[in-house]
Amino acid sequence: MEATTYSNFRKNLKDYMEQVNDNSDSLIVTSKDEKNVVVMAKSDYDNLMENMYLISNEANREHINESMEQLEEGHYTTLSLEDL
Rank of each mutant, 00 (worst) to 15 (best):
E69N: 11
N21H: 04
N60I: 04
R61E: 00
N57E: 01
S43K: 14
T30P: 04
E69T: 03
S80W: 02
V37T: 05
G74K: 10
L13S: 10
T5S: 15
A59M: 02
D33P: 08
S31C: 07
D22N: 11
L81W: 01
Q19G: 11
V38S: 09
D46Q: 14
L54D: 02
S31F: 03
L81E: 02
G74D: 11
N60V: 05
I55M: 05
S26Q: 07
Y76C: 04
V20I: 13
E34Q: 08
D46F: 01
R61V: 00
M68T: 05
L48I: 06
V37C: 11
K11I: 08
S67G: 03
S26H: 01
I55H: 04
A59I: 02
E72T: 09
D25N: 14
D22K: 07
M1L: 05
D22E: 14
S24F: 14
S24N: 14
S31Q: 11
N21I: 04
I28S: 06
M49S: 05
D15M: 08
E50Y: 03
E82Q: 06
E34K: 13
N57K: 00
Y6M: 10
T77M: 07
T4S: 12
L54G: 00
S26L: 13
L54W: 03
M1Y: 04
H75C: 10
N8C: 07
M40C: 06
T4N: 07
L13Q: 14
N60R: 08
V39T: 02
K14T: 08
S31N: 11
Y16P: 01
V39I: 12
L48A: 13
M49W: 01
S31H: 09
N47A: 15
K11F: 04
S43M: 12
Y45T: 01
H75L: 12
H75G: 10
I28R: 12
S80K: 03
N60A: 10
N51C: 08
